[in-house]
């Protein structure tokens, strides 16, 4: 079975959201994902990257690292920033919670990542950046 890995670093600007989900989608095509699986992966990546840009770096820019690993028909992605970090991860992951209610945020990002991927792990420390790791099994019915 195909095993693979990749790593890409890019500037924390909203122009790169599309780039990041394009890379993620291209990385998994070898696993023969369905159209729905591809949409789910692109959306989850977009959520993590947007969070790094607007929350992690608060729009001031920085570097985002996206890594991907494929093993046993599973894909694991991680998105890391060196931004402000999250002090209360449990609260941040609650549906509808947003740290920026004055902006137009629905507080759905983490919930979407959780729903669309099989697992979601958030490592973060106030002032120490954030790393979000997500896994998904592709092609459930294949042997």
């Amino acid at each position: 079975m195909l095993n693979n890995s990749m790593k890409v670093e890019f500037s924390a600007i909203t122009e790169n959201e599309r780039f990041a989900r394009g890379v993620a989608a291209a990385f998994v095509v070898g696993l023969d994902p369905t159209v729905d699986e591809l949409s789910e992966i692109k959306t989850a990546i977009s959520e993590a990257v947007t969070n790094a840009i607007i929350h992690g770096y608060e729009g001031r820019g920085g570097k985002i690292l996206m890594e991907g690993v494929i093993y046993d028909g599973c894909v694991e992605f991680s998105v890391s920033d060196e931004g402000v970090g999250i002090s209360d991860i449990r609260r941040a992951r609650e549906p509808l919670y947003t740290g920026k209610p004055e902006d137009e945020r629905s507080g759905m990002g983490f919930t979407i990542m959780e729903t669309f991927m099989d697992s979601l792990d958030v490592e973060s420390e106030r002032g120490g950046g954030t790393r979000v790791t997500m896994t998904k099994k592709i092609g459930r019915v294949s042997p």
Partner: peptide, 16 residues
């Protein structure tokens, strides 16, 4: 063809 939570946010914001 593609939307994420930012799309939800912009609809919600116009509602407000």
């Amino acid at each position: 063809r593609f939307m994420d939570s930012s799309g939800i946010g912009v609809i919600m914001g116009r509602y407000r």
